[in-house]
Nucleic acid binder design. Sequence first.
DNA 1: CTATTGTCGTTAGCAGGCTAACTATCCGCC
DNA 2: GGCGGATAGTTAGCCTGCTAACGACAATAG
Lengths: 192, 192
Amino acid sequence: MPALLLKDLPRFECLLEYARHNPDLDPSALVAYLHLLRASDIAFAAADRNFTRFGLSHGRFGVLMLLLRKEQADGSCRVDEKSGRTPADLAAAAGVSRATMTGLIDTLERDGLVTRQPDEQDRRMMVVKMTEQGRERLSRLLPIHFQTVAELLAPLSESERQTLLQLLSRIRDPRAVALDPVAADAPASFST
Amino acid sequence: MPALLLKDLPRFECLLEYARHNPDLDPSALVAYLHLLRASDIAFAAADRNFTRFGLSHGRFGVLMLLLRKEQADGSCRVDEKSGRTPADLAAAAGVSRATMTGLIDTLERDGLVTRQPDEQDRRMMVVKMTEQGRERLSRLLPIHFQTVAELLAPLSESERQTLLQLLSRIRDPRAVALDPVAADAPASFST
DNA sequence: CTATTGTCGTTAGCAGGCTAACTATCCGCC
DNA sequence: GGCGGATAGTTAGCCTGCTAACGACAATAG
């Protein structure tokens, strides 16, 4: 069920051993890297257990969250009524390929959590909408999901979470860094 | 290619928006959780690009590392000559199912990086050994892999890495915590 | 010595990503 | 007005993980 491999802890030994034999490389980077994968895998698997209980997966959950967000557009978030509802838009927003999004929507539609109708203006497009049942299921899952997240981070104090977040946000894709070296030490505020 | 979804950044907005509408839940936990998945995904994908360049995957790389470790047994590491070479042992050490290990070894054997021979003592078992070609490929890959890891962590100073590591190692599986609450605040030194 | 129990490796079939290629449609330019 | 290039959604096929179930074999109980 965990999409990422749980195999980090065991590999610790081998890699660290190798590092011991080759002291020219950076042991602290390696250890941090392995802990990062391990912690993320734990969090991923914990969330996935909740999703599975509700007949969802990480991918399908993401789609429903995107649709929920659109529905909250009447609230504080200014999102034009149109954007984000077509499969292509959802795929871009969710970070998966259009082909994958087709499969996700297929399953969601089969389970009655989502509807798919042809767009009237542009007949290439489809319009994906969340059903009442989808909203209901999401509203049952979300408190549990957030509680799980809270439990995962429970061992850390508020200020420690800030520190963790600040350190994590400075880890960047080396390729991206090469393209945009200036951003390497920016505080990196995503959600704004 | 990335086995974990790259879709964390986009979902930031939706989840944070939801959190804004429901202030009873823990925003700092949610943000830390999302940054954790994102950072891990970046690291995972960066490593995976190297593996792919050398015809490997995360899983196959892990197997070779385990076999390499066995081979270093003549050095500083006291490992009995026998352990860790059967598929079942490798599966347990790598954290995958035995069925998955069969597939990993199949591919590695097909590519000539590993051999599989029946065990003489116990005819249920097989003995997996790394070939010279496997050693050679691993020795070409490892410097690049370690350099990638070093680049990923380059934005952090030595003491920041220590902090990161210390915070990450306190994130535990909620289920495991329930079983062993004492370990929840232990420093958690794995590699010893 | 036989029967039960358990382990090893493999197979079959599922899930969820991906790319590449296809059809249908829109847009812009002549 | 029509034609070429871009875009939407789908399909087909691959990869890699998983579980469940199998036959072969070992180990132990009686």
